[in-house]
Design a binder for these strands. Structure first.
Length: 132
DNA sequence: ATTCTAACA
DNA sequence: TGTTAGGA
């Protein structure tokens, strides 16, 4: 399910297409970029190229606007989301760290027991059985 | 034909 | 936010 995110983040739409898809004006779309709500890439000719993710955000902004939320409020919403992502990123790192610790303990266990990885199934009480 | 930046009768 | 000028 990683391929999907990659496609959604590919910048392939010129602003004209985004205008038709979102019904927002070019002025508005560029302004929201200025507010760091979207980050379209630039083509060779300095033209903005938008991704599906950018379009999703623009549509969300359009909804917030319809609900009477101003730019300051919308910016806060996305600032909070970024802070939440940062925390999840840290948790992800800690999970990977725990996994690394397990691998280290495993290799140390093999080293101390004097066995090669191929001999692991010969052990009756190997705490690392079925984990690799 | 489209999009870009900058500026404002 | 709209609109327009002048360039790419």
């Amino acid at each position: 399910m990683k391929e999907k995110e990659l496609r959604r983040s590919m910048s392939v739409f010129p602003i004209g297409t985004v205008i038709k898809l979102t019904d927002l004006s070019a002025r508005q779309i560029r302004y929201y970029e200025e507010q760091d709500l979207i980050h379209p890439q630039r083509s060779e000719g300095n033209r903005r190229m938008y991704s599906l993710n950018d379009i999703d955000v623009l549509l969300e902004i359009k909804d917030y606007l319809a609900e009477g939320i101003n730019m300051a409020g919308i910016k806060r919403i996305y600032e909070l989301q970024e802070k939440e992502k940062e925390e999840k990123s840290r948790q992800s790192e800690k999970t990977l760290t725990d996994d690394d610790v397990r691998k280290i303990l495993y290799s140390e266990f093999l080293s101390i027991s004097g066995l090669s990885p191929k001999d692991k199934n010969k052990l009756m009480n190997n705490p690392f059985r079925n984990q690799h």
